[in-house]
Design a protein around this nucleic acid. Structure first.
Lengths: 197, 197
DNA sequence: GCGGGATCTAAATAAGTGTTTAGAACACAT
DNA sequence: ATGTGTTCTAAACACTTATTTAGATCCCGC
């Protein structure tokens, strides 16, 4: 019967949101357009009507996710200043991962599926990040390795979340646990920045 | 026509290997039993005949993977001794991830799918690891966080592999690159072990 | 040589996939 | 009031999925 084109503007956004949720849960291949439609309150045909296919919707979802990541990391990259750069970067990345669980899973699925969404994201950030590192830490490979270690340490908490749930008595996602972890990675970043090479 | 029950003993192992490869590539849900059968050189019906279904085969694959991980980590855990413990653990974990790409992807898929295979693995290692940490580094949470950071730093190199390919001129999986990374994480482990708290 | 049992395949089943098609229901302009 | 165009659904399409069934093919003991 259709409610009439009135809420037409909202439907596309709802599909996008539902798609992000579904793809974050199951990845592109295992994600179902019928499930997306159901969550958005429309038929599966609509994702075709608005986006032109499952893959196209997925690309839109990934593009939007990349934009969000960019908006979150950009400030930490823009504001330079050698002392505390690593800590600021680690803090921003941590906040990003802590806040948006969906995006986190989405990117992990992208990595596993070997999609070029990750490669695109990488090639966009490699140049400025490399320049930053070179400018502040010198040209050696050790700076790169340290950066990888730091980012890995930040992501590790969320990557090993199910394992950590057994470790800590508290839930790893609780506000208190997150605050403690954030404090740790920031301190770690400071220590690594001053680490003798 | 069947080659006759002669290589019957080999078929089950071949299915298991093909299943491990397929599930590592695409995960449980997206993995296809037909593809597994094709890779093993038999019909899809055989995975049912030998294992009782797709899920059961997957469980067998995960169980075998867990066993391999256990065999790899156990020596580093067994040989105690405070100085160098962290470095030994980091080295063992690095070698494990560097060697078996398939297992790495399999476990990542397990984490994303929220399977209880990871939880089972975790609950098996939480107790001994926690005891080790408590024994050598004290009872504070900081030791736990440091361990998480270290393991994250080790895994990060492989997790961000597609990104790193753009960073380094060299392929991250090359023998030279791996050796350099291993040296870095071991040095990092030593530094973290001596880090003031 | 002849059952018996194990091993394997091809076909059938039922459910689910993404996408296409035909058409209904509504808003709006003329 | 009669088109016109947008928005949406229900049904159909072609395809893949995991699993089941029936039967063929072989080896081994008798």
């Amino acid at each position: 019967m259709a409610t009439g084109g009135l809420d037409a503007c909202g439907v596309k956004a709802r599909i996008l949101a539902a798609g992000r949720a579904e793809f974050a849960r199951h990845g592109v291949t295992a994600g179902s357009v019928r499930a997306i439609g159901a969550e958005a309150g429309v038929t599966a045909a609509m994702i075709n009507y608005y986006f032109g296919g499952k893959r196209a919707l997925y690309d839109a979802v990934v593009a939007e996710a990349q934009g969000r990541l960019r908006d979150r990391i950009a400030p930490a990259l823009a504001e330079p200043g050698r002392p505390g750069l690593a800590a600021r970067l680690a803090g921003a990345y941590f906040d990003f991962l802590a806040e948006d669980r969906e995006l986190q899973r989405l990117l992990l699925h992208e990595v596993l599926d070997g999609g070029d969404g990750v490669r695109a994201l990488a090639s966009r950030y490699v140049a400025p990040l490399r320049a930053l590192l070179r400018q502040h830490f010198g040209d050696d490979d050790e700076a790169l390795h340290l950066a990888v270690s730091l980012f890995g340490a930040v992501a590790g908490y969320f990557l090993y979340e199910p394992v950590l749930a057994a470790f800590f008595g508290e839930a790893p996602r609780s506000a208190a646990a997150l605050a403690r972890r954030r404090s740790h990675v920031v301190r770690l970043a400071r220590a690594l920045e001053e680490m003798p090479r």
